[in-house]
Design a protein around this nucleic acid. Structure first.
Lengths: 217, 217
DNA sequence: ATAAATATTTAGCCTTGCCTAAAAATATCT
DNA sequence: AGATATTTTTAGGCAAGGCTAAATATTTAT
């Protein structure tokens, strides 16, 4: 399994979570910052190795084998993110690029020992679930903050967008995983929210609220 | 800098330590398990990038830039070995292959944070020195056990050969870094040694003694 | 000093993973 | 339904990094 094949499987996995149908060539190319023709090439190779199911013009989907492989890459990525934040004191907006590299290290023993050292974490620093060694993912009960009614109290449990600018914005507003959030008011005009976060009052746009996962308290 | 280029620089660095002259094509090919013609190709590319000095038929040597790059790879390799043994409980004969992968992770911040977490180690689990972030190596005063006279007391500080079979042999004989060794006798016939290791009496062949580094107590 | 042996380089080819441009299939719009 | 737009695939090519076989230097041995 090459570095490149692993990246394709990972991207196809992530795109499959939204699209219930086959993932199309174009969207893979967009995410990978490559060209549709390159995607066609690689997808045909992956199909020959029984990692994806592919019919011309019909999009791609993962086989069981392909899905498991993708899950093990996601597992490694998220586990390393925990390590970087918990053990090496990286901030949550700095870990992605390094984890993109570390996720390709091949050693089952390494990832399992790391998991043990970290105390069997079930979520990464952005609140995304970490697959266990069998590929099982603990389902997390979460909603978008934008869907929460006025007066409700919730706890912040994850981010949908984990780009550095968004994470840095949250840092600035002192919104973190675990923060207690109460929805004080919702503005009809632009769906912006007035919140009480821990002890502070904060106002956030609908776009922010649509990228924050929360769970009922 | 590609994965492959990094491996060439590392191999050239290690071979330079013995040969004071230029490193020859053949020996690089042997270590890399590739062919001399492939080495010629790559060495020409490295020369164009000012990482090595190369004249046809005259062997290769590292430039300052190439040497620093190689030292940073050695630094990462040995630092990760410490992490694997100290933090994740790998044994010293298991770490090499994983460290070969980890040494290519590109992030200065990562290696420096890791160094801090590990308490600024100066040697890896085999007693080899870890270059600091400027490429400086603490010189370690060490001799081969085979050169130590009868009656002398020394401490085991490193291994010359760090292949799993040799390391496992040492484990079996309970010889580890830090072990106190007294040379009780040397056999004229085959240069084998009678040792007292910590509290146990052990006999080792000259081949073993020629692969163990010790320092005077 | 020259012949034989060894080491190194060159030439030409292969695979991987990517690209552009052109062709073909599918989707959309009126 | 038919024309147009979009998406996808095919064809042909390129760079990296490797290979074998043949040519060329260098070293060693007589």
């Amino acid at each position: 399994m090459t570095y490149s094949e692993e990246n394709y499987l990972k991207v196809i996995y992530h795109l499959s979570l939204n699209n219930s149908k086959g993932v199309n060539t174009n969207s893979i190319a967009n995410v990978m910052e490559s060209k549709p023709s390159s995607v066609t090439d690689m997808v045909q190779k992956l199909a020959e190795k029984d990692l994806v199911i592919y019919k011309k013009y019909q999009g791609v989907s993962l086989t069981e084998k392909g899905k498991f492989t993708a899950l093990m890459i996601v597992r490694k990525h998220r586990m390393w993110e925990v390590f970087l934040v918990e053990t090496l004191d990286f901030s949550w907006d700095e870990v992605h690029d390094v984890a993109e590299q570390l996720e390709h290290i091949k050693s089952e023993k390494l990832i399992n020992k790391l998991e043990e050292f970290l105390g069997f974490p079930t979520e990464d620093p952005h609140g995304d679930p970490i697959p266990d060694r069998n590929g099982k993912i603990a389902k997390i009960d979460k909603k978008l903050l934008s869907e929460i009614g006025v007066g409700k109290k919730v706890i912040c449990v994850g981010v949908k967008d984990s780009s550095p600018p968004f994470l840095q914005y949250l840092d600035k507003q002192q919104i973190a995983l675990g923060s207690a959030i109460e929805v004080l008011a919702k503005e009809d005009f632009d769906q912006s929210l007035s919140l009480r976060v821990d002890d502070k009052d904060v106002s956030v746009s609908n776009k922010i609220a649509s990228n924050l996962f929360v769970k009922p308290v």
